[in-house]
Write a protein that binds this DNA or RNA. Structure first.
Lengths: 224, 224
DNA sequence: CGCTCGATTGAGCCGCGTCAAAGTGCGTGG
DNA sequence: CCACGCACTTTGACGCGGCTCAATCGAGCG
């Protein structure tokens, strides 16, 4: 398990080991591990999409910027998630580290080549893409149908489900990240949180630490 | 090219021929052709997803209904589009005929079986799923970042691109369909149309017939 | 201790939804 | 062929939810 170091021009990649893999289907792909500092760009929209990533530790946001600085977060990636396997040869979106984080990078062509000789892998990739499509559609539903409070409730429930249904949540992302994910302002997100606290649906020991005390109430709120 | 008829319980499928196919990758899948009347349900959310569809003629909306009758349209399908190839064994959404339309249906298992022995097909399916994911993400961006007028402009430009960039558009869908796609009300959609007409960005010989007279203006409006 | 960044809270405003009323086009039947 | 009815569209008046602007608060850190 020999370690070696990479000095990226931006200084974001601080260390890498060569013994890490991404598992897809029955196959494992050899890649390397990389660390990114908080707010570092992992890849940018428009750059060549020649690597696929698995998040090991930390949290990542997939983002689209508009001309005038407005920002929309499409998904949050949590440990175990695969990202960066985009449609074309160019990344459609930007990936940024929400917290200091650790990823495994695999050359995309090795996955594509593997899929050319392993139908089981190919099926796994189809399901991966389909589940991303479904997630994006659900996101569009939330943005289209729900009001501010309902969006935040839906976000909390979605996040809780990702954490194996635990009722004690440590949010890695700021209010601004949540706002840009739900297409709201920080103020609206904040008001929604305090309202849910007043209703005793949640408790907020700190602003990033959430206790879901009444899941039913959140589910009822979300459904509205 | 012998014709035969199917009588569905709902009376929606009025005729079918057995000589039609869906082409995917290098392969063609034998299926059968079916016609649906305007507003007929092609498949419903929750039903077994054991067929994949290609639209031949007409237009289709992919829809999600909430408990209280609210509705969100996720995509419009135009001739040539493939739909119904969902993630699980159950359809996540409902497909409805916007106009009288004609589809080719293929058993989903024949596609899945084909992918198990043809890697080129498998790659095509990955790209199909990825492009659906990208479309859903773009849709989420529109709903998240744009105001009413900008959404309608984006919709018109997207529709125009689908029609080989023609500037003369025949919208198959009602204002209500557009509203439910863009997460607006019919009134807001209507006002956006008339505003664009006042700005001489478009002309409206009839409400369903749109002439894009100033594409640049629409693009500028959309970008806002 | 004081600085800074993020979160919260409040006041006012604006865009879009809601409600209501015409207006328009089209198919149907007389 | 015309008259009617129905579904869809357009237009207007008004209210509300969430955005904007601004001030305060709180926690982490040098």
């Amino acid at each position: 398990m020999r370690d070696f170091h990479i000095e990226a021009s931006g200084g974001n990649i601080v260390a890498a080991r060569c013994d890490d893999v991404i598992a897809l289907g029955q196959r494992t792909f050899r890649g390397f591990r990389a660390n990114f500092d908080r707010n570092a760009e992992i890849f940018g929209a428009g750059e060549p999409a020649d690597h696929v990533y698995r998040l090991v530790r930390g949290a990542v946001r997939i983002v689209r910027y508009t001309g005038e600085g407005r920002r929309q977060i499409l998904t949050f990636q949590m440990p175990g998630d695969i990202f960066g396997y985009d449609l074309g040869a160019i990344h459609d979106f930007t990936a940024e580290a929400i917290s200091d984080c650790e990823v495994v990078m695999v050359r995309r062509c090795s996955i594509d080549n593997g899929a050319a000789e392993d139908v089981r892998l190919a099926r796994t990739l189809v399901d991966l893409a389909k589940s991303q499509a479904l997630a994006a559609q659900e996101h569009a539903l939330v943005l289209g149908l729900k009001g501010a409070g309902e969006r935040v409730a839906a976000f909390l429930l979605q996040f809780a489900k990702r954490c194996a249904g635990r009722s004690e949540l440590d949010l890695p992302m700021s209010r601004l990240d949540i706002a840009d994910y739900l297409a709201l302002t920080i103020e609206s997100v904040s008001r929604a949180f305090t309202q849910m606290e007043r209703d005793h649906s949640i408790a907020l020991p700190t602003s990033r630490h959430v206790l879901v005390t009444d899941r039913r109430a959140l589910e009822a709120l979300q459904a509205a």
